[in-house]
Amino acid sequence: MIRTLASRFLGYAILIFFALVFLYPFVIQIANSFKTEANAADNPLSPIPSPFVTDSLVRIFEGTGFPTWLGNSVLVTVVVTIGRVAFASMAGYALSRLRFPGRRALFAGLLALMAVPPVVLLIPKFLVLNQLGMYNSYAGLIVPLLADATGIFVMKQFFDSVPVSVEEAARIDGAGSFRIFWSVVLPMAKPALITLTILSFTGSWNEFPHTLVSVQDPGLFTLPRGLADLVSGSLGAGTQYPLKLGAALLATIPVAIIFVIFQRYFVRDASAGADKG
């Protein structure tokens, strides 16, 4: 009994320690966004800003390109999420259900593409955008992100796990492939579609390397790109921390909200990866 109590106490102590390790950086981030620069430099650890000021937030909106970056991020995220969900569910369905020549080869190709590390695509992507005249444009920023191999794979796996009987009933009733996909398959695929939407939303909201090789004009920057520029670029390193932390905080909020609401889908994403191995 005493051993159980002791081990339970130890368990909680370890958990609380690590909860602090994992969450306190966010506390620091929030607190320091509302501090004066001098206060942030003197008491970086303190969770309470004294005095409490909103200067940095005002400056983020009035003195930086933040509003532009935010607008671009919203545009990119919305378009990319819609595109990925549509294209991945269509392709995943076809690869799982429809019989057409070349299907096997396509799936093999898809598995191969999934193994390509994104970071080695930096120069290649720039080359193709440059060649097609899409460099430094919204098209270059958005179109290459519209389909992702992993999303297609997730949808194919999902459709593989759904029995075909419902679709066959619809087929006997004389519905064509498009009809079946739109009014029978998609409504059934809701959980997978939600997972895919979240995956695409966070993926495109946080996307950084692609923006680095697809655009150059500050008017086309998304939040991660603008933030990176803010830190390593013109405003210089070392100072202005309340401003930088505040901007980073604002960029984190949408994902945080989605995470809190749809947490169980996030957990499913992570463990969905485990099946691949």
Binding site: P25, F26, I28, Q29, N32, A40, P44, T202, W205, N206, F208, L223, P224, L227, A228, V231, A237, Y241, K244, L245, A247, A248, L249, A251, T252, V255, A256, F259, F266
Partner: peptide, 14 residues
């Protein structure tokens, strides 16, 4: 799940 860039800013400060 947070942005790698945003979190890098926080750690740069820490």
């Amino acid at each position: 799940v947070t942005s790698s860039v945003a979190i890098s800013v926080v750690f740069l400060f820490m």
